[in-house]
Amino acid sequence: MKNIILCLTAAILLSGCAGVLKEQQPVCTGTAMVGGQESTVQIYGVRKQNNLTQYRAGYPFNWTWVSAGTFTSTTCQ
Results as ranks from 00 to 15, higher is better:
Thr53Pro: 00
Lys48Val: 14
Phe71Gln: 03
Asn62Val: 06
Glu23Ile: 07
Gly58Gln: 06
Phe71Cys: 05
Gly69Ile: 07
Ala32Tyr: 05
Gln25Lys: 11
Cys17Leu: 05
Cys17Val: 08
Gln37Asp: 09
Thr40Ile: 15
Asn3Asp: 07
Thr70Gly: 01
Asn51Ile: 15
Gln25Tyr: 08
Lys48Thr: 15
Lys48Gln: 13
Thr40Asp: 09
Leu21Gly: 00
Pro60Thr: 06
Thr40Trp: 06
Ser15Thr: 14
Phe61Gly: 02
Ala68Gly: 10
Leu8Asn: 11
Cys76Arg: 04
Pro26Arg: 00
Gln49Glu: 10
Gln37Trp: 03
Thr9Ala: 13
Gln54Leu: 10
Ser67Arg: 07
Gly69Ala: 09
Asn62Ala: 11
Ile5Gly: 01
Ala10Asn: 02
Gly36Thr: 02
Asn62Ile: 06
Asn51Leu: 15
Cys17Glu: 02
Ser73Met: 02
Arg56Gln: 15
Val20Leu: 08
Ala68Met: 07
Pro60Tyr: 09
Gly35His: 03
Ser67Asp: 14
Gly45Ile: 02
Leu8Met: 14
Tyr55Trp: 09
Val27Cys: 10
Ala57Leu: 04
Leu6Asp: 14
Thr9Lys: 01
Val20Pro: 01
Ala18Leu: 12
Ala32Arg: 07
Thr29Ser: 09
Gly35Lys: 06
Leu14Asp: 03
Val41Lys: 00
Phe61Tyr: 14
Trp63His: 15
Asn62Gly: 04
Cys17Pro: 00
Glu23Thr: 09
Gln49Tyr: 10
Tyr59Ala: 13
Ala32Ser: 13
Thr29Leu: 01
Thr75Phe: 08
Met33Asp: 01
Thr64Gly: 03
Phe71His: 04
Ser67Tyr: 12
Val20Ser: 03
Arg47Gly: 02
Leu8Ile: 15
Glu38Trp: 04
Thr74Ala: 10
Ser73Lys: 13
Asn3Trp: 07
Lys48Met: 13
Ile4Gln: 11
Val46Trp: 01
Ser15Tyr: 12
Val66Tyr: 05
Lys22Gly: 08
Gln54Tyr: 08
Met1Lys: 05
Leu8Phe: 12
Met1Thr: 14
Thr64Tyr: 05
Arg56Phe: 13
Gly36Asp: 02
Ser39Met: 13
Asn3Val: 04
Gln77Thr: 11
Ala57Arg: 05
Gly69Lys: 15
Trp65Phe: 06
Gly19Glu: 06
Thr64Ser: 11
Asn62Lys: 10
Thr9Pro: 02
Ser15Trp: 14
Thr29Asn: 04
Arg56Lys: 15
Ser15Ala: 12
Gly69Gln: 14
Ala10Met: 11
Gly19Tyr: 05
Pro26Tyr: 01
Gly58Val: 12
Tyr59Gly: 10
Ser39Cys: 07
Gly36His: 00
Val34Glu: 03
Gly69Phe: 02
Ile4Val: 12
Gly30Lys: 04
Thr75Ile: 11
Ala10Leu: 13
Ile43Ala: 11
Ala10Lys: 01
Thr64Glu: 13
Val66Lys: 03
Gln77Cys: 03
Ser67Ile: 12
Gln42Ser: 03
Gln54Val: 05
Arg47Ser: 05
Tyr55Gln: 05
Phe71Lys: 03
Thr64Trp: 06
Gly19Phe: 04
Trp65Lys: 02
